[in-house]
Simulated scan of single mutants.
Amino acid sequence: MTESSKIWVAFGDIHQSVKFVNLIPELENASGVIVTGDLTNHSPAGAIEKVWDAISSRNSTILAQQGNMDRANVTAFLKERNANLHCEFRDLAEGIKVMGVGCSIPTPFGTPGEITEEKMEQLLEETHDRLGEYEQLLLVVHDSPFNTKLDVISNGIHVGSKSVRAFIEKYQPAIVLCGHIHESSGEDVIGKSRVINPGMASGGGYVLVSVENGKLDATLKQI
């Protein structure tokens, strides 16, 4: 893989089920792995270590963030390994940056990584304020943006984050990766932004994020 051509494998909503890791053909040769959130189910002892070991056995370059089902110990674990993406950003290539904000807005289930819409807006804006100059942005969020194909639960109601949607409308990142709503995997657009939810990892959905000759792109894939 040349310097002008890079590929990252992205997925989320792992929920401690790691059998899918050995089924992704591009994983070992990718530049790295991006995890959108929900690595665990309420983060019992040893859970994040199990997920980390499964992924890092095939690719040791990992950027990940907590979802609503992850406790703060997941972020602490990722920070220790210089792998945390929650409220952080990195350079993917010249002029191309990735920034992440995990967690979700409140759900009926009272999960540990829930925050208010106001807090979500604050975290997104504060992280973006630190980015500096960029030409293209890859936004990685756990919560799906409101009123899209990607935030619809089984009864047809849209439950995504209005703050996430407003941020996308304002800044128009080239690619947005999200998750959280397992039953709404797929792709949608908000203005010029392509938004992709690969669904639950154990269902086989993942995204190939590529940089080819300075252009950021993404493709939804299925095992």
Rank of each mutant, 00 (worst) to 15 (best):
F20Q: 09
E125N: 10
V51L: 04
M1Q: 13
G132I: 15
T36C: 11
K192T: 08
L27E: 13
T75M: 08
V18C: 11
P112S: 05
E80Q: 14
G214V: 00
I7T: 15
L92T: 01
I168K: 12
E183R: 02
M200K: 08
V189E: 13
S202L: 03
A76E: 15
I190N: 03
T127F: 14
V211P: 00
G67F: 09
L92M: 07
K215H: 03
F89N: 03
K119S: 08
G156H: 10
V33P: 01
T111W: 09
G156E: 15
R130N: 12
V33H: 11
F89M: 02
S4N: 12
G199S: 03
D70N: 09
E212K: 01
I14N: 05
D53L: 04
I14F: 12
D129V: 02
A83P: 00
I34W: 14
M120T: 07
G186W: 14
N41M: 13
I196V: 10
L139H: 10
V101W: 02
N147Y: 10
Q122T: 13
D143C: 01
V33A: 05
V21I: 15
E117K: 01
I181N: 03
T75R: 10
R130Q: 15
L139S: 06
V195Y: 11
S210Y: 08
D151L: 03
V18Q: 07
G95P: 02
L139I: 11
T40D: 12
V195D: 06
I24L: 07
L208F: 09
I7Y: 10
F20P: 03
E88C: 03
V51D: 03
E133A: 07
E94H: 00
N82H: 15
N213V: 00
V152A: 02
E135M: 08
I157V: 14
K79M: 13
V98G: 02
L78M: 07
T116H: 06
T2I: 07
S144A: 12
G95W: 03
N29T: 10
S202P: 00
S163D: 12
E187A: 02
V164E: 15
G12R: 11
H42K: 10
G199F: 06
